[in-house]
Design a protein around this nucleic acid. Structure first.
Lengths: 198, 198
DNA sequence: TTATAAATCTTTACATTGATAAGATTAAAT
DNA sequence: ATTTAATCTTATCAATGTAAAGATTTATAA
């Protein structure tokens, strides 16, 4: 731990962590590379030794946050292993993760940001992407009911869409709702048996 | 139609329409107020006679696009009035709207942008917001089944989350899927009767 | 060890952008 | 017709991403 050396020592990590903390509180829109550099005590051009461009920096942070997200899902996956409410709890975890850090939603999923490959059909279940985890669980549950593969695939996507949409909704800044989303989310997911027509 | 007068004549409208066309093709991230001004044949400061700030310009465009969205839903609402598949078709329209113009999704819903008030509980059904339209329809359908009000509210939110999430998914740039989303969407929405547990 | 190379950081500089101020031109109002 | 308000232009500024050139430290190789 040097006091004030020319070299920072661990700038790359410092930039990422400072940047993520900033995004967590103020959102990506407000993030300026120069300010993050300043917060880390280095000059404005220093980050360019570690990231070719600001976008590359963003991508690095995304992977960091995406790992947090995956970890949350995996934790639930283990905790509720073999429980009949596993899928429900996974969905709840999905939503709560963003509910607790609203800025992460846009940061991970806004159109220009998505650097994570997602696959719908025949998910690569050996990967630990959030989608893969959800897919794997949903698939194993749905397959217990004998149904055409296509229907199962559709159900998986529907389940994903439901929780993803809920995440989008609960992170909207101008949404009005009475309190306790956290308990409500579970009820909403359960209510999914909607009597749509034809 | 003057050829080249000092005054533009209808600059405000021109800016909005040019801006929206730009967003439709390149997304909001790429939009610069100066470039839009240039495209309209005026100087860089001209827009400030019509919008105090860039954000105000953005909000104006959002309302424009949101109106397009509402109109699409209302059209479906009329077309399938009294049809048993009304809700399904509304949901499909919701998703297709963004599927056809992916950049609109982020533009309307990205966190910093949402200037439209949304209400979950006891929706203001006399307004023509997309949510209100969906809510009104869903409510009238769900209420035919005798259920506690809270359950109905949950189902409404679930329905909204499902289509909103689908919209988010189909507009993701890195998502892989085989063709014909348009026909698929309907099947996915229908498959919503998911056998979740507990 | 020492000379050379590579990595990391600073300073300077530039182009783009949102925004403001001062003034020119036109349209509206009295 | 004179005044007033709206609209537009031409500077100008500060913040930002980024490139270039050089300084300082670390790593490598002789």
């Amino acid at each position: 731990m040097k006091e004030k050396s020319y070299h920072h020592g661990d700038l790359r990590r410092a930039l990422i962590e400072t940047g993520i903390e900033f995004i967590k509180q103020e959102g990506e829109e407000a993030l300026s590379l120069r300010r993050i550099a300043e917060m880390c005590g280095v000059s404005n051009a220093a980050p360019y030794a570690h990231f070719k461009t600001k976008d590359e920096f963003i991508v690095a942070m995304q992977h960091y946050v995406m790992d947090l997200f995956s970890a949350a899902l995996e934790k639930t996956s283990i905790e509720y292993k073999d429980s009949p409410s596993l899928l429900l709890m996974l969905g709840k975890t999905y939503v709560i993760f963003f509910y607790q850090n609203p800025f992460y939603y846009d940061f991970l999923f806004s159109r220009k940001n998505i650097s994570i490959k997602l696959s719908l059909e025949n998910a690569v279940t050996d990967e630990n992407t959030p989608l893969a985890i959800l897919q794997k669980t949903a698939a194993s549950i749905f397959r217990k009911v004998k149904l055409p593969e296509k229907v199962i695939q559709n159900k998986i996507i529907a389940m994903w869409a439901l929780v993803h949409g809920l995440a989008a909704i609960v992170t909207m800044p101008n949404i009005e709702y009475d309190d306790n989303w956290e308990t409500r989310i579970e009820e909403i997911i359960k209510s999914i048996t909607i009597p749509y027509q034809t």
